[in-house]
Design a protein around this nucleic acid. Sequence first.
RNA 1: GGUCCCGUAGCUCAGUUGGAUAGAGCAACAGCCUUCUAAGCUGUGGGUCAGGCGUUCGAAUCGCCUCGGGAUCACCA
Length: 576
Amino acid sequence: MKNLEQKITAAIGTLYGEKCELPLTKTRREFAGDVTLVVFPLLKASRKSPEATAMKVGECLMRDIPEIKEFNVVKGFLNLTLTESFWMNQLAMTEGFNRHDDTGRTVMVEYSSPNTNKPLHLGHVRNNLLGYSVAQILEAAGNRVVKVNLVNDRGIHICKSMLAWQLYGNGETPASSGMKGDHLVGKYYVEFNNRLAEDPSLQEKAQEMLRKWEARDPEVYALWETMNGWVYEGFDVTYKALGVSFDKIYYESQTYLLGKSLVEEGLAKGIFYRKEDGSVWIDLTADGLDEKLLLRGDGTSVYMTQDLGTAVQRFSEEKLDQLIYVVGNEQNYHFQVLKLILSKLCYAWSDAIHHLSYGMVELPEGKMKSREGTVVDADDLIDGMIDTARRMSEELGKLDGVSPEEAAEVSRRVGLGALKYFLLKVDPKKTMLFDPKESIDFNGNTGPFIQYTHARICSILRKGASVDGAESKRMRDEGPDAAPCETINAQELELVKLLTEYPRIVTEAAAELSPAVVANYGYELAKTFNGFYHDCPILREEDAAKRDFRLRLSRQVARTLCLAMGLLGIELPEKM
RNA sequence: GGUCCCGUAGCUCAGUUGGAUAGAGCAACAGCCUUCUAAGCUGUGGGUCAGGCGUUCGAAUCGCCUCGGGAUCACCA
């Protein structure tokens, strides 16, 4: 396709004597043709009407470029029809495609970044799925990707859980209570806030505990390690259920002192300044922002100090071409400042920092608020989706005669597929709505729709292989491109075109950092296949060449759906 | 108040490096299973692309203004 565009650009160049790169677009369904060239930009050079120009260009391209079979002109739109052999070549090329060639670039993706005082909720789920998916997409685009997690394991909020547990916990543990560790710790965080109303002194006690932690008081430190350990065990279960993973995990307890030397550097360069109380600031009012604190009066660091430090550390540890932070849009300001400060400190790589800012997940009644108990817990959500999938499968009779293990696995894939697709099909930057009552669909533009399409194809391929092995026999006897079917019908051609788009979709998704691009493509492909499946017999087709071609298309659709959904972390069942 | 994001069908969302008559799903209604999995397919209805002005052959897409919604501007992280 790229090759074709270059040829067209060259042909137009010789025709009008200037380089004019006109992009090819897909021809709209209601017109004849495969690709369309818009000739309006050529009018100045041609000095003719749009129609005449398009005709002239059409004739010229038709003469010079063998891949073009015919053309038609509608106003300034030149619609080109390409030869079937062109499309068959394109198809053969995509059949060998898994991922793009190495770019030699390394990208670090930071995502998840939880607090250890409460369990993961729906917002974290969007974050985790986005981060993991973007990493997969970048990898498929040919990059080396390092997935990292920066766990916020220290600070006053953790001390609140610890204090409440110490005062009211009676030695309760995950083992004794049967609770998941992160939920147990979360329970005491809530307990703290409840008790605070009647006993305001708790606030000061928590502060005291934080001071002890920073002084490495043995008792406090041991409690901190124990309770964090519980939380990590709980998180691991959730991460595993979601299918996300990390190459490296950073802990703020180990990084929170970083960045102080940068403050010295900034002071020396005169970019930062110190106030009377000893605190250090940067004045960003000239950039339309505010003054920003970088170091407290008592010399302790703040969030920004630490983030400056970790960024510098990461770029010095290895050669990164890009560092992506998957963090909610509530922190847009923070990252704007972070980037600005790094550029003022003259780090050449400050432009390589990118905040992948995603929108909040809202409930029908508005934002999730833990205090009002309106959070949607990640584990509950996952379990609920899997249960729903199982119930639905049973109602539809899909699990009749299936082993319990297989039934569980299908339910798991479908339930998670529905959840992941639901959260990833929406443009990351947009705020999205989740209605627990209506729950997540299993029909229409959903994960299960795509999974179902895949299961159907697998069923055909199983039968196709066992019926007579016609395809493989013909392939053996006559070679891969022997006796191709003579004519491709409209639906087959539509599938071929879509299939050949996949590599470009990966490129686009990587450029936009948007799993939604991949999700929408997968839906489009599945939908197109379902139409084809409905109208065209595959195994029942009597013409052997046609049957083989349709089997080949089906196999490639299944393969492409697997690749695309794999980028979203969605597993496709072979039966459902 | 400053900065940033968003506004497309009743609902949830596609479509924006400017292209032809703005698309899906859900919901509603009407059809299609003795034949490759009906979690599917087909059809009907549903729009001032928030509003206005501008840029141009052409604007949902770019610019300015207005209205509406959200985020943020902590010695929290």
